Each structure stands twice: as structure tokens, then as C-alpha cells.
Simulated scan of single mutants.
Amino acid sequence: MNLMDSTRSVWKLSDEQEAIVELCGDFAREQVRPLGREVDEADDGSPLELFQAAAQVGITDFMIPEEFGGGGFTDLFTQCLVQEQLCWGDLGIGNFLCSNGFFADPLLVLGSEEQKEQWLRPLTGENPILTALATTEPGAGSDAASITTRADRTDGGYLLRGQKAWISNSGYADQYVVFAKTDPAQRSRGVSAFLLKKGAEGFTMGEPMKKMGQRAIRCRELFFDDVFVPEENRLGAEGEGFIGLMKTFDASRIVLAAAATGCARAAYEFALNYARERVQFGKPIIEHQAVAFRLADMATRIDAAWLQTLRAATMFDQGKPVVAEAAMAKLQASETAAFCTWAAVQTLGGWGYSREFPVEQWMRDAKLEEIEEGTSDIMRLVISRNM
């Protein structure tokens, strides 16, 4: 299934976009896909050497503005093209390789020029650092306005107190964006964002959390025990953090939709090839109506998810409101990935259930896309409120 042909039938890609799609497609096929099973089985950390290899060819910082040393593809449309290609190789690894973009988003929305220069520059070049975005808490997931981590005023800055959970890249990351309440009585209007470096006094973290899938991304709990943050490390004004976070969610949900679509395409292609080669009852199983119809459903859902994703990305780049469209794209794509990976396992039968083939891993990996950055239930709620 060639999603790029589907893309070109509606959108005209620039020479630069064509080049980065080709680069990422080759990288996914030659370096990401062969490593996916190994990383999943080992479950002992993120593939840091692969991150460095990706940095050497400009994949890890392609989304950072050129003035800060990045590749300059700041439009969300191109970011979706890249994410789909990499996550076709492996969903967890693809998300890991582009993870610095999630740190950069609130900084680009709320940060001063001085903050951008100081905190984005280390993400670029051939030896970039890793970063993390710290929002989720043990008692506050999709409802970001209910976070309880505090940032209380003190001389020259703030003291952070509280706990975060499920924070991707934590431990590896050298820089963090932390969301905390500066005015708890104001709920969402009391949320502020802060820049923090690893090693700050009082900033500790737990052991890596055990995960069902996407094991290429390490997650930990973070603990803040009177961690001092200087005032110049606050992003925007007090109370503007939630605005930056919602803008970040609009973008990240669309990018994650592209990631989920890449995983769905991988599962479809694998199942299709298997169905053409596997013979049962005297003929290839693709000639059996039930299998053929299942593959047709997979192809149809993938195409729909991809077009919704690129529509949302185009609207975002045009500066249009995309709260509902971003939620629709994520809902459609994440549930498409869940369906297609299930359908691939079903098509392979017993072999799909074994670790002989990658589809069982992809099924586990895909589940996270229905949870992170807002569960499918939350996406339906967002859509219903913005009809």
C-alpha cells in the first residue's frame, strides 16, 4: 500500500519534502525495522546508538527551526510524512527518534528568543541531547487541568513540589518541560510551564516502568522535592502553561495519528504478503472471502486515517482551529492501528500469535496510541464538545 501515492494525488510535495520522505523511508527499512524485535525482546532501554545514527543524517532535529540549528521543517504536514515513514519501521522506535519535537513544541509556543536559543540549540547537530515533556501524574492523565504538582513563589524563582508519571525519555533526558500549578484555585488558568535540567537538587526519579509495548521508549516517575527553578526558566507568563499545552496537544495528536497510521500500514502489508503466500484448502488464503474482506477493511481504514491526519495537519499549518480535527485524526488513526494489528494477527493465525513474526509486537505497541495524549474516550468527548 503506497500512502505516498495517495498523498501526492491530493497534495503537491516540494523537492525537500520528497527528499526527507525518501531518507526516512530508507532509514526505517534499513535500520529501524531490523532493530524493532531486538529492542522489544531485550526491554533494557532505548536504542541510543540508533538515535545518534539518525542524528547524523538529520532525522532527530528536522522539526527544529533552522535559526536554532535544526532542519527547518517546522510545518506539521512534513512532520506527519516523516513520522509515518519511521513508525512503519517500528512504532516505538519511530516515536523515540522524533521525541525531541514534543519538548520543542511548548518552547516554540511560549518561549522567548533567549530561551529558544539556550534550550533548543542542544537538540540539534550530530550529537544532540534527549529531552522530556512532564505533564501526566498518577492522578491526572488526560485531564491536564487537574495536575497537582505545585510551583510556589520563592526569592528569584519557584519551588517545584509534586510527582509526575509515565514520562517518556526520563532518565536519558537532560532537559525537561514541567507543567505545574502556580495558582491551584484557577484550575487550567493556574497552570504554568517551567524548564528544568537533569541533576537539579531535589529532582529524582524512579525505576523504569514496565510496559506492554513501545519498549524503545523508557518511562519513569519523576519526583520534585522543593526543586528550585529560576524565574527566567518559566515559559511565558504565569498561568499561560495550559494554553501552550493545549497547542502542543493539537500538534502532538496529529503527529501521533501519523505514527499510528505507519504502524497500521506495516501490519496491513505484512498480512497481505502472508495471505498471498499461505495456502489453505488448496488455494492462497487471500482468495478466501473472509480474509480478502478483512484486508479490504484494513486498507480502507488506513487510507481514511491518513487523509484525516493530513487534513488536520494542513489546517494546523494554515493557523486554523483544529481541536476537533486533531482529535478525530488521533481517534481514527489509533483505532485503525489497533484494528489492523489485530487483523494481521488474525490473518496469520497461530503464527501471528507467536513471536516468530512481528505482528504480535505491533499489536501491543499499537495499544498505546489509543491511550497517550488523550484516550479514545477523551477524544470522543473533545469531538462532541466541538461539533
Rank of each mutant, 00 (worst) to 15 (best):
Q308M: 15
G69T: 15
F339Q: 06
P34D: 09
Y353A: 13
D317V: 10
E221V: 01
R33N: 04
L86N: 04
K367V: 13
T78F: 03
V177Q: 03
G241A: 14
D61I: 03
C98A: 06
S6T: 15
S99Y: 12
R276H: 14
G349T: 14
F316S: 09
G89W: 02
A134P: 04
S99A: 15
A180I: 05
R29F: 00
L195A: 12
R189M: 09
A290H: 03
W119D: 05
G239L: 09
G58S: 14
Q214V: 09
L86D: 05
R385N: 13
I129L: 10
F270R: 03
G239N: 07
W11N: 02
L50N: 07
Q56Y: 12
A344K: 06
A313P: 05
L368I: 04
E231P: 00
E30Y: 01
L195P: 07
F203T: 09
I383G: 11
S168C: 09
E325K: 09
M63Q: 07
A258T: 00
K181Y: 04
Q17V: 07
Q83I: 00
L108R: 12
D303F: 09
A292T: 13
L310F: 11
P138Q: 08
R37G: 02
E114Y: 07
F68P: 07
Q289H: 13
V322Y: 05
M328L: 15
S188T: 00
R380E: 11
V255A: 11
G125H: 03
R265A: 02
A312S: 05
D297S: 12
A257P: 02
L368R: 01
Q56K: 12
L196D: 05
R29P: 00
E30K: 06
V291I: 15
I129Y: 02
G141M: 05
A140M: 08
